[in-house]
Design a binder for these strands. Structure first.
Lengths: 205, 205
DNA sequence: ACGAATTTTTACCATTTGGTAAAGCTACGA
DNA sequence: TCGTAGCTTTACCAAATGGTAAAAATTCGT
């Protein structure tokens, strides 16, 4: 017997929930949780405010739903770190994947950044449940690589922090970066070269 | 004849404006601009809301004043980059100063991060006027070091971004860092070792 | 085509919040 | 000590905002 408390969503439900989440991503990522209003989200989605509240239990529900859905996508590049590959190339590929995400999904990056910046008030359980175990398992993997002398001795935790920080910077601080970068040069191309060189030099001794 | 539009502030003025800014730093850095309320700031400062508005022209005025005052402190470590020193040691010392600031002034770091994250709506003129010229001048300095073969060829802009990102990360994403770091190890000590090693390896080729 | 279920709109509401007017209090120079 | 300028409080207000009730419209299975 199927779960009676969950009915399969109609086509309209699917479409509208998706529209709302897309609009909310736009608005939340630009103005933060408190700075975003339901009216803005409704207007961006082309729906009325009460209609939005027909699909979600409230502002916080929309925010949490967004964050939860994004968590998967966000952790994927780290999941792909392959124990059977070459350590240096694996980590450099991870750096590149993270930089690509900053380029392709800046709104998602800023949404996360805003939430973490305020102390992760709505996302902490999600972080404990998904980020923390993955982080620890990949740290362990890097430690085995170090033990096998395939990487120089370093603290995997700070290595990962450096990767996160230096790649996401291009999305999260985009307004500053674009202010300081010459418009004539491709920011992400230069960033890729720089970061690849930086991490390669550190990982190859 | 002294400027008639500016009277010297009384002792009470000085004390209360300082108290308000300190309270505002606490509240703005925790909740962001929109998330902070005048009531919170007033309560934190131990003053009434109308009394706060006696000293400042409004919420935005407090925020802008804070940001402007902080700009100086924030840029100091970069100003200290000495053209006459050894390039590698100068840059590594800069990395350490930035990391020390993340440790000693996390609220200031988060205040800036929040403002930049939202596109610097209130700070852009300040950034244009102070950050941009300093950034460009220090980039030029690094380029001369490279031209003298005292540093490997690299893009100074991305180098500086990497330094900013990887050091401020420990303040701005503190909630995530503390979630993932073992409590038994000193985060900033480990970060310092890691970042010094990383940038040294890159700068010494 | 018809009735039931789903979706959308209209008309509200209570709270929060940035801000103000004006009266009252305090410090301080003459 | 007295008057004035500077400081603080009380009592408000208008707008914004998250949210709701219920009627109206639409969709969909039969």
């Amino acid at each position: 017997m199927p779960d009676a408390s969950v009915k399969k969503p109609s086509r309209i439900q699917q479409r509208n929930r998706h529209t709302i989440l897309e609009a909310a991503l736009e608005v939340f990522s630009r103005h933060g949780y408190r700075g975003a209003t339901l009216d803005q989200i409704a207007s961006e989605a082309g729906l009325s405010k009460p209609n939005i509240l027909y699909y979600f239990d409230g502002k916080a529900d929309i925010h949490v739903t967004l964050l939860s859905q994004l968590m998967q996508t966000w952790l994927d590049p780290l999941v792909e770190l392959n124990p059977d590959g070459d350590p240096v190339e694996e980590i450099l590929a991870y750096v590149q994947r993270k930089l690509d995400m900053a380029q392709d999904f800046p709104r998602e990056s800023r949404l996360f950044a805003g939430e973490i910046l305020q102390g992760a008030p709505r996302m902490r359980p999600e972080l404990e449940a998904h980020l923390k175990p993955l982080f620890n398992s990949k740290c362990a993997l890097i430690r085995t690589w170090i033990a096998q002398d395939r990487l120089p001795p370093l603290d995997p935790r700070h290595l990962i922090f450096s990767i996160w920080a230096s790649t996401q910077h291009y999305a999260d601080f985009e307004s500053q970066v674009s202010l300081l970068m010459d418009d004539s040069t491709n920011t992400f191309e230069g960033a890729s070269k720089h970061l690849q060189a930086m991490f390669r030099s550190m990982l190859t001794r």
